[in-house]
């Protein structure tokens, strides 16, 4: 590629903007990947129109192959927006990328007409057009995927909070009954949630019950211990209950020391410990 080659693409985009728009919309409507159930033709027209005018503006700077240049920011922002909204609507990545790729055909046809018999120029133009649209298409796919990841993470977070509720056992005593496998990120979310609830409720005792947890690895154990330390700094005391023999063994093998952390065999034991600390006695009523 020589850099001095002056592409006709910018001029072409300006001259045929309306024609290109119509042809492109037609190409999109014909594409098998179009999701008529998710996208109205009015929306399709609106976003196609906006993309074309942004593309034309960016292209007039003549820098067609460097998408990192600042003039491409509006185009990328727009595409990122399209990807994000399509990701949340349930489009697939290829359905989303087709938005860009389907513009190839109308653009190529115009380029062919424009270059006539100058095959060298045509080759040059097609290379530029392909590279540009491929990069924009890939960008769309990448942002689409990262948006999907964000959505999934958000959903996981919501599920986590639903599946591990912090409950108030008594005025001033919270319990966090953990069930299922703990991985490091789940533990982190759950623990932050516990500390926040401690502040909101002003509870001085928090029981973390791990009876329902099959195994604990070093990282998770460390998260647990850090939570206990953080709670202590805030002025609350955590009690870990339900450490099963296997888990206790693993911990020792892993070299995790529970040190001065208060541990109890069961949630009931932990609760009566907290009662005792708070000066509460439970008595059976005599008949």
């Amino acid at each position: 590629m020589n850099d001095t080659f002056a592409s006709k693409i910018p001029a072409l985009l300006a001259k045929y903007e309306t024609d290109l728009l119509e042809e492109w919309i037609k190409a999109q409507l014909d594409a098998t990947t179009l999701r008529k159930d998710l996208l109205s033709s009015a929306d399709l027209r609106r976003s196609s129109d906006e993309f074309l005018s942004l593309l034309r503006r960016a292209a007039t700077t003549g820098n067609l192959l460097n998408l990192n240049a600042p003039e491409w920011l509006p185009v990328k922002d727009f595409l990122a927006g399209v990807s994000r909204s399509r990701a949340s609507q349930g489009f697939t990545p290829s359905e989303t990328a087709t938005f860009i790729f389907s513009f190839k055909q109308p653009l190529f046809t115009r380029l062919q007409e424009e270059c006539g018999s100058d095959s060298r120029a045509l080759a040059e133009e097609l290379w530029i057009a392909t590279t540009l649209l491929d990069r924009l298409g890939l960008f769309t796919a990448e942002t689409f995927l990262s948006s999907r990841e964000d959505i999934i993470k958000q959903q996981q977070l919501e599920m986590l909070e639903l599946s591990t509720p912090v409950v108030t056992l008594w005025n001033g005593i919270l319990a966090l009954p953990l069930i299922g496998t703990l991985d490091s990120s789940r533990t982190q979310v759950v623990m932050e949630n516990l500390l926040q609830t401690i502040v909101e409720t002003g509870s001085e005792y928090a029981i973390i019950d791990i009876t329902g947890v099959p195994t604990v690895d070093t990282l998770v154990a460390q998260h647990l211990l850090k939570t206990v330390s953080a709670a202590r700094l805030m002025g609350a005391q955590c009690i870990i209950s339900g450490i099963r023999p296997q888990i206790a063994q693993t911990m020792v093998h892993l070299g995790v020391a529970f040190g001065d952390v208060i541990t109890k065999a069961s949630l009931a034991d932990a609760l009566s410990y907290a009662f005792k600390q708070m000066g509460i006695t439970v008595l059976r009523k005599q008949n």
Binding site: I198, A231, L233
Partner: peptide, 29 residues
């Protein structure tokens, strides 16, 4: 008193133990 959770988590990660300090959730406590 009144240390925020995010601050407490960060202090633990930083490695400060503040072992000599008494703490409480709020002024009343």
């Amino acid at each position: 008193v009144g240390m925020q959770p995010a601050v407490a988590i960060t202090i633990v990660e930083l490695g400060l133990s503040l072992e000599n300090i008494y703490t409480a959730l709020n002024v009343d406590k």
